[in-house]
Amino acid sequence: MTVTCPDLSVEIAGLHLQNPVMSASGTFGYGVEYEPYLDLSQLGAIVTKAVTLEPREGNPQPRVRETPAGMLNAIGLQNPGAEVFIDDKLPALQRFGVPVIVNISGRSVEEFARLAEMLSIDGVDALEVNISCPNVQEEGMTFGVDCDMTGRLTEAVCAATDLPVIVKLSPNVTDITVIARAAEQAGADALSLINTLLGMSIDVERRLPHLGNVTGGLSGPAVRPVAVRMIYEVARAVDLPLIGMGGVMNAGDALELILAGATGVAVGTANFVEPAAMHQVIDGIAAYCRRHDVARIADLVGAVAADQA
């Protein structure tokens, strides 16, 4: 039998996605910035830039720097705060008819819980809990590199909302499966991974760091093998759906993450390079399914034959 119209839909934490492809937080603004370049209604979901309780100014410039097949960024969670997000940004996201996943970040367990409560409103379909931002002091990654903190934070957010809770993991840890299990045991409905890898680059002529923040998060194709490996490990360690991200530029890259164990795939840095990258990934996945007679993309999740390597 030849598959002509593969089923690309997936279920993640109770959300029905028409396809597995979504934006990676922080690379897609609040969606509308990319409206001139692609039809957002075709996406699997839209994941917003991180929202914090109070407005954040962000880090001093320069904030981005290209590296081989990648980039460093240290934006510093610049955002207008939860109230402005709810009033000004969220309504515009409803027009596209796809699930809206709001990424939240905070300085304390209480702040995360308060945000989760505030955002448990119509128009928000799930929360992605950013326990892994490498570019801000005293928050973000501080939670994501510690099992107990990850557990306490996840528990508090789950208690504060009825929305599906997706915990976004940091790759800057010794064993990501330990953190993944802590989030699972605390009640997470899904996990997303990986956030950026902490990195740094130096202008040797001037003997200065390239970034105003000195260090930043590395993303892009350069990090993809790390993402594939971590998704593969976490998929075997937990019983939760995973959203994979890390240097996906095209359908082949997305399929790599899916075969490693990701149910959903987020596209990040590629949006900067090719504003229609997510469309190309979706079309490419469909073409792959037709070529390989795959009736349902969900059948490929974690289907890498590692035992036959």
Binding site: T27, G29, P36, E57, G58, V64, R65, N73, I75, P275
Partner: peptide
């Protein structure tokens, strides 16, 4: 002029400090 990511206002990579505060 500033190093840029997206060029369309989404990534906030090219931010410069504003006199009104923020970037």
């Amino acid at each position: 002029e500033q190093w840029m990511g997206c060029g369309v206002g989404a990534c906030l990579g090219c931010a410069v400090p504003a006199s009104a505060g923020g970037y």
